[in-house]
Amino acid sequence: MIKSYPERLIDENGLRLDGRRPDELRPIKLEIGVLGNADGSAYIEQGKNKILVGVYGPREIHPKHAELPNRAVLRCRYRMAPFSTEERKNPAPSRREIEISKVIREALEPAVMSEYYPRTVIDIFIEALQCDGGTRCAGIVAASLALADAGIPMRDLVSS
């Protein structure tokens, strides 16, 4: 974390404070199949961001009344670990996390061919272990990989 802000964010060589060019991405590392118990899983590191995603399903839905007769329900939970930021984050789901969960679900929904598994649910758990900006985007990338790893039919992989 930068404590005092410098006057110039791009130096005379045209590089950003961390030495990247203006159009350069942070280094990305992706891994799949990292969790044994989940049907599909993925892990992403983008710069200092570290995110773990587990996918369960398609499986039987509880509560039963939430099922849809024509397609699978997609449930998504984005969560930041209490130790993911410099200052401890309250582990209770915040307004921000609830909204990001919804946004990620809506980003993935068009890609997943949920009509192949009616009356079931696909659960996606996104756990941000270390956060440094842009965790929702990195989370979407990892979630789409975890869905592919689970063998769920998709129109395409999702990136953001």
């Binding site: 049907d39 599909g40 399903g57 398609p58 061919m113 598994y117 592919a148 790893d149 689970a150 063998g151 769920i152 039919p153 998709m154 129109r155």
Partner: peptide, 22 residues
């Protein structure tokens, strides 16, 4: 393709054999 798997075809019929499915 809509899945991770091994590509296969017979004549002009294309398919993918899944690595994992339920």
């Amino acid at each position: 393709s809509m899945i991770v798997g091994l590509f296969d075809y017979r004549g002009n019929r294309l398919s993918v054999v899944p690595l994992k499915h339920c």
